[in-house]
Computed example of a mutant assay.
Amino acid sequence: MPSSYQAPSRKDKASAETFSQSAQTNTSKETATVQKILDNKGKGVFSIGPQSTLHEAVELLRDKHIGALPVLDSQGSLLGILSERDIVRRLADTPGQTLGQKVEEIMTRKVEVCEPSEALISVLRRMTEGRFRHMPAVFGDKVVGMVTIGDVVNYRLNELEYEALQLKQLIVG
Score class of each variant (00 low, 15 high):
33 T>W: 02
68 A>W: 00
8 P>M: 08
8 P>L: 09
73 D>A: 07
26 N>A: 13
132 F>V: 01
94 T>Q: 15
96 G>D: 07
8 P>Y: 05
54 L>V: 01
78 L>I: 04
55 H>M: 14
56 E>S: 13
160 L>D: 02
11 K>N: 09
76 G>R: 05
139 F>G: 09
161 E>H: 10
85 R>V: 06
97 Q>L: 15
34 V>A: 06
100 G>L: 15
114 C>F: 00
105 E>R: 12
1 M>C: 11
34 V>M: 05
25 T>S: 15
29 K>P: 06
115 E>S: 09
157 L>A: 10
103 V>S: 02
40 N>R: 12
41 K>T: 01
79 L>D: 08
41 K>W: 00
85 R>P: 06
120 L>T: 02
56 E>Y: 05
123 V>S: 03
65 H>C: 05
21 Q>I: 13
56 E>V: 05
169 Q>V: 08
85 R>K: 13
75 Q>C: 10
126 R>N: 08
145 G>R: 01
102 K>D: 05
18 T>W: 13
107 M>A: 03
110 K>T: 10
90 R>T: 15
78 L>G: 05
45 V>H: 02
151 D>I: 01
75 Q>A: 13
53 T>E: 04
115 E>L: 09
20 S>V: 13
133 R>C: 00
122 S>L: 09
11 K>H: 10
20 S>A: 13
49 G>F: 08
166 Q>M: 11
90 R>M: 15
43 K>F: 08
44 G>R: 00
130 G>R: 12
102 K>N: 05
109 R>D: 07
23 A>V: 14
172 V>G: 04
19 F>K: 13
63 D>M: 05
148 T>P: 07
93 D>W: 15
124 L>F: 08
96 G>A: 07
85 R>G: 07
14 A>P: 03
166 Q>G: 09
43 K>I: 08
165 L>S: 13
157 L>W: 09
117 S>Q: 09
163 E>D: 12
132 F>N: 03
152 V>G: 03
45 V>I: 04
88 V>I: 14
138 V>Y: 01
121 I>H: 11
117 S>W: 07
170 L>E: 13
163 E>W: 05
167 L>R: 06
95 P>S: 14
111 V>Q: 01
92 A>E: 15
138 V>K: 00
110 K>F: 08
131 R>V: 04
129 E>W: 07
16 A>Q: 13
144 V>W: 03
173 G>A: 04
150 G>V: 02
57 A>H: 00
65 H>V: 03
85 R>Y: 07
50 P>A: 14
99 L>C: 08
46 F>Y: 11
126 R>W: 04
43 K>V: 10
71 V>I: 06
66 I>V: 04
45 V>R: 01
130 G>W: 03
169 Q>N: 14
140 G>H: 04
98 T>A: 02
112 E>R: 11
172 V>H: 11
99 L>V: 12
47 S>G: 06
4 S>G: 10
86 D>S: 12
86 D>G: 12
121 I>D: 14
148 T>A: 07
77 S>K: 14
